[in-house]
Computed example of a mutant assay.
Amino acid sequence: MAISQITLWKLISGAFGLICLLLMATLGILLKNSYTKQSIQPTFSPGSMTELQEVADCCSCPEKWIGHQCNCFISNEIKTWNESFHFCASHNSSLLQLRNRDELHFMNSTQSFYWIGLSYSEEHGAWLWEDGSSLNQDLFLSTETLNPKFCITYNPRHTILDELCEHKNYYICKKLT
């Protein structure tokens, strides 16, 4: 009788072990699917930017692009302003054109500066975005000290700097979905 009880307990414990494994696998799959569907508010370094992607009802970004508020962004390399401009154009996007101060609040943790699509127009005597629209003067503290012959970098903590366009920086392309 003792041998049959041991065998019975082994069968019962084996069945419970198998059930536990199946439940853990199911939970892992559910958690993975749940995690990829929720909005991500990243804190990241420039190198990890492309690994993050927000998926929302209104937008779906290409692979390795970061989505935020129905816009898609990317910046995983360091390039000159001209190289950045051409890279964005080749991906049906443009260098970032900021409309408001909170547009990139999800990037506030980064210390890096990024090329944006702001340049000085000699013809208009003003700083203009790539699409020809004028810069909202409330967006940055001052553009008066910027050198019109340089290109503009932006730090998501709302700071802009002028730099030689030949310097290499990260960049932000923006693609409306």
Rank of each mutant, 00 (worst) to 15 (best):
Q5V: 07
L8D: 13
K10R: 01
G14A: 12
A15H: 02
F16L: 15
I19G: 11
G28P: 00
L30V: 09
L31F: 03
L31M: 12
L31V: 08
K32W: 05
S34Q: 13
S34Y: 02
T36Q: 15
K37A: 15
K37M: 13
Q38D: 10
S39Y: 09
I40C: 06
I40P: 02
Q41H: 10
P42K: 02
P42T: 11
P42L: 12
S45Q: 12
P46V: 03
P46T: 03
L52P: 11
Q53L: 06
A56N: 13
D57S: 14
C59K: 02
S60Q: 07
C61S: 09
K64R: 15
K64P: 10
W65A: 00
W65C: 08
I66V: 09
G67Q: 09
H68R: 04
Q69R: 12
C70P: 06
N71K: 14
C72D: 04
N76E: 01
N76V: 00
K79C: 13
E83W: 02
S84C: 06
F85I: 10
F87R: 02
F87T: 11
F87K: 12
F87D: 10
A89I: 00
H91A: 08
H91L: 00
S93M: 04
S93G: 11
S94P: 01
L95A: 06
L95I: 04
L95G: 10
L96F: 09
Q97F: 02
L98W: 00
L98E: 02
L98M: 03
N100W: 05
R101G: 14
R101F: 00
D102T: 07
H105R: 14
M107F: 02
N108F: 01
S109R: 04
T110V: 10
T110R: 13
Y114Q: 02
Y114E: 10
W115E: 07
I116A: 03
I116T: 05
Y120S: 07
Y120E: 04
S121F: 02
E122M: 09
G125T: 13
W127D: 15
W129I: 04
W129Q: 06
W129F: 05
E130W: 00
E130P: 07
D131P: 08
L135R: 07
N136T: 09
S142C: 14
S142M: 07
S142D: 15
T143Y: 04
T145K: 11
K149T: 06
K149P: 13
K149L: 08
F150T: 09
T153Q: 08
Y154M: 03
N155D: 08
N155A: 05
N155Y: 00
H158L: 11
I160H: 05
D162T: 05
E166F: 00
H167I: 01
N169W: 05
N169K: 13
I172D: 12
I172A: 06
I172P: 15
I172W: 08
C173W: 02
L176R: 14
L176C: 08
